[in-house]
Design a protein around this nucleic acid. Structure first.
Length: 173
DNA sequence: CCCTGATTCGC
DNA sequence: GCGAATCAGG
């Protein structure tokens, strides 16, 4: 892919908004984060004040991170690790109870869905949960994005919903 | 290990 | 000019 005017402008915009190089690369498509960084240099755009970790976006996200923890969060996903407050896709973490799934599958009340990272299709990696959430036709659509065990497309919670052993189905009733 | 931006240098 | 490889860091 070559740097058309449109792509360069988008790059400038996103970069000035504080998105990371990899995020920008994902949105532009067809380029690596290195390509983005290289281009940023060539355009002699202002670099980040401090390299590494704390980008503006990161700080902003961290600030709004102290959301109230859901009441009985630990019921069956207690061992889930939810430490990933930062990442390539630095999107605000949200505690959310997925009402739809509860109504559809869960017989047990108060089962809290793990923190969704609200990832877009392009931000998924090998170890992010690919459980789709919401209507793909709306912009609310995203993926769970929680940490998934190696070789699994879903996090432990969603894997249960995806692959239901007969034994588990009985419990569901 | 995950990620970040910065730099270098062959193409 | 481009961007992969590498470096340096959280």
């Amino acid at each position: 892919m070559n740097w058309t005017d449109e792509r360069v402008e988008k790059l400038k915009k996103l970069w000035s908004e504080g998105l990371s190089a990899s995020q920008i690369a994902a949105q532009l498509g067809g380029v690596s984060r290195n390509a983005v960084i290289g281009k940023v240099h060539r355009l002699s755009l202002p670099g980040r004040a401090k390299a590494g970790g704390a980008s503006p976006a990161t700080r902003a996200a961290k600030r709004s991170t102290s959301a109230p923890r859901a009441p009985n969060y630990a019921s069956r996903v207690a061992t889930r690790t939810v430490t990933r407050a930062a990442g390539a896709t630095m999107l605000r973490e949200e505690i959310e109870v997925d009402a739809t799934e509860d109504l559809q599958f869960a017989p047990v009340r108060n089962v809290v869905v793990p923190i969704a990272r609200r990832l877009g299709l392009t931000e998924l990696t090998e170890r992010t949960c690919k459980w789709p959430v919401g209507d793909p036709l709306t912009d609310e659509f995203h993926f769970c994005g929680c940490e998934a065990p190696e070789a699994s497309p879903y996090c432990t919670y969603h894997a249960r919903l995806a692959y239901q052993p007969v034994s588990e189905r009985r419990k569901m009733r």
